[in-house]
Computed example of a mutant assay.
Amino acid sequence: MDVAVLGCGRWGTFLAWYVNKVGHKVMLWGREQSRNFNGLRESRKNEYLLLPEEIELTSSLEQALSFAEIIIISISAQELRSFAKVLSTLNSQGKTFILCMKGIEASSGKRLTQVFSEEVGKNINLAVWVGPGHVQDFVKNIPNCMVIGSDNIEVTKKIAGAFNSELIRFYYGQDLIGNEIGAATKNVMGIAAGMLDGLNYSSLKGSLMARGTREISRLIRAMGGNDVTIYGLSHLGDYEATLFSMHSHNRKFGEVFVEGKPFDKLAEGVSTIKALKELSNLYEIELPICNALYEIIFEHKNAKATLEELFLRPLKYEFQ
């Protein structure tokens, strides 16, 4: 099968490497002016892996789309709408698109499949690829489990069957709303975990896990999804890779934020916090953890005091 991967950052480059590894022809697209793309073109490697010679590189979207039957997109979630507008001008008839990002559009609170469908069209094969795993582990042959989700079960089965291997074992996502919201919000919980680490409150991460899953499950239910999905691979299953791993950009962002240090990597959870503010208002759902993070990052409230108030507030029933 011919597959194009659009986006040559850490995850996109890994996806090209992985899809080639499981036996498919791959073309990797990057922007001509991209430092990542130029580095790959010069040396075929980044700080994580070496690309096999059989993976083609291109800076032409037209070439990438015409090459492939399956199109994997791995870019910043907040850039998806403008990118999809460009794709809508190209021939995408009969293609299957897979979104491999974890986020929510900050300005609207819309899920990424909604954003993509609005720009490219609803009559397309569209899926998401989410769940736990770090490039640093996969390239060392450390396996993990992930989820393919779509509104069309046949599309889900086709993708999972094509890419399943001993390195990544795929499960069928049965709830697209829950999988998308769960995947995006685990990054938010990762930021909270990093802040607790930075404040030397790491022991509170157990409370964060318990309360975070319940908080987001209420939101998913209000949005029309299955609240049980939050306890699957897309959210709770990704906690180890996000709340505890040294590789997690979101956890690291939270840690250095409370330490007053700069952070130069992409932490998608920051924009997702803005989106959750929109969703909280839209669905009239209280999201205490997400709201506390919004106050800390965007309203510049004291992180230590805000998180202490959140986790150490007066006695109350655990379940209500």
Rank of each mutant, 00 (worst) to 15 (best):
V128R: 03
T96Y: 02
D197C: 10
T156Q: 04
T272H: 12
E278H: 10
A183V: 03
K274I: 07
S207L: 12
A184T: 09
G12Q: 12
A106E: 09
T213Q: 13
K140H: 04
K261F: 04
G198R: 12
N226I: 00
T229F: 00
L310R: 08
R41Q: 15
N91T: 03
K25E: 14
N152R: 14
V26T: 12
L266T: 15
N164R: 01
T272F: 12
P132W: 13
M209I: 14
A127D: 04
S280H: 04
R218K: 15
V135P: 03
K316G: 11
E166I: 00
R218T: 13
K252D: 10
E215A: 13
S234T: 15
K140E: 10
Q93K: 15
A64T: 01
M101N: 13
K25N: 15
I289L: 09
E53F: 01
D227P: 15
R31Q: 07
L65P: 00
N38I: 06
S280K: 08
M209F: 03
A16N: 03
K95N: 12
G225Y: 09
L287S: 08
M195V: 06
F138W: 14
V115I: 15
E215C: 08
E240F: 14
G224H: 06
L315R: 02
N91Y: 02
K25L: 03
L199A: 08
I297S: 01
V120G: 13
L50V: 13
N250K: 10
M209N: 09
